[in-house]
Amino acid sequence: MFYIHCPYCDEYRDEEEFHPKGQAHIARPEDPETCSDEEWGDYLFFRDNPRGIHHELWVHAIGCRKFFNITRNSASYEILETYRMGERPRFSAEHPQGESAEHGAAVNVADEAGRVADQEGVRA
C-alpha cells in the first residue's frame, strides 16, 4: 500500500485516502471543434503504459480533495515525487535522476528537505 505525500496537506498519508485518476498532463485540446477525429480520439482513448517512470494524476479524495501529480516508477512502485497542479516534475524518463537545481527554477517544490523526502518516496 502506497505512502503518498500530499503536496497540499504536506503530509504522508496512506493510499486508501487517495484515488488514482490516470495519466497526468493530458490537457484537453484548446478548441475541440477544430480537432480532427484522430486527434480527438487520441485525447480520449490513448494513454502511455511505460515500464518505469510515469506521471500520474491522483486526488486526495478523502483528505483535502485536491488533485495533484505523482511521478512513480511503475516497475518498482517507488514514488519519486509528488507535485501540485501547474508545477513541472523534476523526475522524468529523460531525467531519471532528477533535473538539476538550476533547471528547477520553474519547479516549485517546497524545500530541499522535502525534495529529499520525495526522492525517498517513503518516510516514517
Binding site: 490537457a27 484537453r28 479524495a61 488533485f67 497542479m85
Partner: peptide
C-alpha cells in the same frame, strides 16, 4: 462531486 472538482482544478 469528484468529476466537478477534476475539471475545475485541472482544466
Amino acid at each position: 462531486m469528484e468529476w466537478l472538482e477534476l475539471w475545475h482544478q485541472t482544466e
